[in-house]
Measured scan of single mutants.
Amino acid sequence: ERVRARYDYEAQNEDELSFKKGDIITVLEKDDGWWKGRNGKEGLFPSNYVEELE
């Protein structure tokens, strides 16, 4: 599954994923509120910062 970033997100910890608004992220795992994904790097990000691609 792929999602698009709705906002910029700056990683707060080294296991998190940074991205810019409009970036496409491949979702690897979904957990409550935090998803694991890849966009060149791999890490956790808040699920409310992304939207599913149509």
Rank of each mutant, 00 (worst) to 15 (best):
E1G: 12
E1R: 14
E1Y: 15
E1C: 15
E1F: 15
E1V: 14
R2I: 12
R2L: 14
R2F: 14
R2M: 14
V3D: 02
V3Q: 03
V3P: 02
R4D: 02
R4V: 13
R4W: 05
A5N: 00
A5I: 00
A5V: 07
R6T: 10
R6F: 06
R6W: 05
R6V: 14
R6Q: 08
R6H: 05
Y7F: 14
Y7C: 15
Y7P: 01
Y7R: 13
D8F: 03
D8G: 07
Y9Q: 04
Y9P: 00
Y9S: 02
Y9E: 00
Y9F: 07
Y9V: 03
E10H: 11
E10W: 11
E10S: 11
E10A: 11
A11I: 02
A11F: 03
A11N: 03
A11Y: 01
A11G: 10
A11K: 06
Q12C: 10
Q12V: 09
Q12H: 09
Q12I: 08
Q12A: 11
N13K: 13
N13M: 07
E14V: 11
E14Q: 12
E14C: 09
E14N: 11
E14A: 14
E14T: 10
D15Q: 13
D15V: 08
E16I: 00
E16N: 04
L17C: 04
L17F: 04
L17G: 00
L17R: 01
L17E: 00
S18Y: 03
S18G: 06
S18A: 06
S18D: 06
S18L: 01
S18N: 07
F19M: 08
F19T: 00
F19C: 02
K20M: 09
K20L: 09
K21R: 11
K21N: 05
G22Y: 05
G22K: 03
G22E: 03
D23A: 07
D23K: 03
D23N: 06
I24N: 02
I24P: 00
I24G: 02
I25Y: 01
I25F: 08
I25R: 02
I25S: 00
I25V: 05
V27Q: 02
V27C: 04
V27A: 04
L28C: 07
L28Q: 05
L28E: 04
L28R: 02
L28T: 10
E29K: 11
E29W: 15
E29V: 11
K30F: 06
K30D: 03
K30N: 04
D31Y: 15
D31S: 15
D32Q: 13
D32G: 15
G33D: 11
G33C: 15
G33K: 14
G33P: 10
W34G: 04
W34D: 00
W35Q: 00
W35F: 08
W35V: 03
W35E: 00
K36D: 00
K36Q: 05
K36T: 07
K36H: 07
K36M: 11
G37R: 02
G37A: 00
R38S: 11
R38C: 10
R38G: 05
N39W: 10
N39Y: 13
N39I: 14
N39Q: 08
G40R: 09
G40M: 09
G40V: 12
G40W: 12
K41Q: 11
K41C: 08
K41L: 09
K41V: 10
K41N: 11
K41Y: 09
K41A: 10
K41D: 08
K41M: 09
E42K: 06
E42L: 10
G43C: 04
G43Q: 01
G43K: 01
G43D: 02
G43V: 02
L44A: 08
F45S: 01
F45Q: 03
F45T: 03
F45E: 03
F45M: 02
F45A: 00
P46G: 04
P46Q: 07
S47P: 14
S47V: 10
S47Q: 09
S47G: 09
S47D: 06
N48T: 12
N48K: 11
N48D: 14
N48A: 14
Y49V: 08
Y49A: 13
Y49C: 13
Y49F: 12
V50R: 00
V50G: 04
V50H: 03
V50W: 03
V50S: 03
E51V: 08
E51L: 05
E51K: 04
E52L: 13
E52P: 15
E52H: 12
E52K: 12
E52C: 11
L53S: 06
L53C: 11
L53E: 08
L53H: 07
L53F: 13
L53W: 12
E54R: 12
E54M: 12
E54S: 13
E54L: 12
E54I: 13
E54T: 14
